[in-house]
Computed example of a mutant assay.
Amino acid sequence: MAEHYSSFEHKGWRWFVQRITAVFLVGVLAFHFITLHFVNHAAEISFAGTEARMGQIGYFSLMVTFLITGAFHGVNGVYNGLVNMGLKGTQKKIVAAILTIATLLLIAQGLRVAVAMSGMF
């Protein structure tokens, strides 16, 4: 049988957070699909409706948490995939820095849009 290899330190913090974020993302994605694809059909979604939803602090907080969690989960998965493929040394540090910067820029832009859509600030 082939030996199992993972760049995740089994039971380490990144391993644990990857699993917690996955569970959270599945739940929020289900909420998203039910709310925006079954309760309200795609043809009924409007800019004004989005502004109204984002104006509610609970919905706004959930979407911001969804953004941050999704960004972390995705980038952490990509990083660990690259490490599993043999990324080491200086290249590993450079890729980690680039992915960290890209994640922060993604989150900053997402927050900018969320705040603009909320009309709260």
Rank of each mutant, 00 (worst) to 15 (best):
V28D: 02
A97I: 03
H73F: 10
I94W: 12
M120S: 02
V28W: 12
G89A: 03
R14P: 15
G58T: 05
Q56N: 15
F66D: 04
S118Y: 07
S46R: 09
T69V: 08
T50G: 05
G49K: 06
T65R: 10
I101E: 14
A48Y: 14
I68W: 01
Q91F: 07
H10M: 11
I57T: 07
L105A: 15
G12V: 07
I20S: 07
G89K: 07
A2S: 13
K88W: 02
K11N: 12
L82A: 12
M54E: 06
G119A: 06
V78R: 02
L99I: 06
I101Q: 11
A116H: 15
N40Q: 13
I98C: 10
F47N: 05
G89W: 08
W13P: 05
V115I: 12
M54S: 09
S7M: 05
S6K: 01
G86M: 05
A96T: 01
V39Y: 05
Y5G: 08
G12I: 10
A71I: 00
S7H: 12
Q18S: 13
G74K: 00
E51W: 00
H32S: 08
V17C: 10
H73T: 02
N40E: 14
A52K: 11
F33P: 00
A52M: 09
I98G: 03
S61P: 06
I107Q: 04
L99Q: 14
R19L: 13
N76R: 07
R14I: 14
N84A: 12
I68D: 01
K92A: 08
Y5W: 10
T65W: 11
F24V: 01
I57K: 08
F31K: 06
V23C: 04
S6C: 06
E44G: 09
L99G: 15
W13A: 15
N40V: 00
G12R: 03
T21A: 06
F121H: 05
V26K: 02
G119N: 07
L104P: 05
K93T: 04
E44N: 07
T69N: 03
A22T: 10
V95K: 08
T65D: 13
S118P: 07
F33S: 15
H32C: 02
I45E: 02
I34Y: 04
M63V: 11
A97G: 03
R14C: 06
F60Y: 15
Y5D: 11
H37D: 09
E3M: 04
A30F: 02
H4M: 13
G58E: 12
A116G: 09
T35N: 10
G119I: 09
L104G: 14
Q91G: 09
G55H: 09
N80P: 01
F16P: 00
L29E: 00
A30Y: 00
A52W: 00
V75L: 08
G119F: 08
V17Y: 12
K88H: 07
S7Q: 09
G110K: 01
S61H: 01
G81T: 11
Q109V: 05
A22E: 03
Q56F: 11
V17D: 07
E9A: 14
E9K: 15
I45F: 04
V17A: 07
F16I: 14
V115E: 06
A108I: 00
Q91L: 11
Q109Y: 09
N40T: 02
E44D: 13
H73E: 11
M54F: 12
V78I: 10
S46C: 11
Q109L: 11
Q91T: 03
F121A: 03
Q18H: 14
H4E: 10
T69S: 11
I34T: 06
V113Y: 05
R14Q: 13
L82C: 10
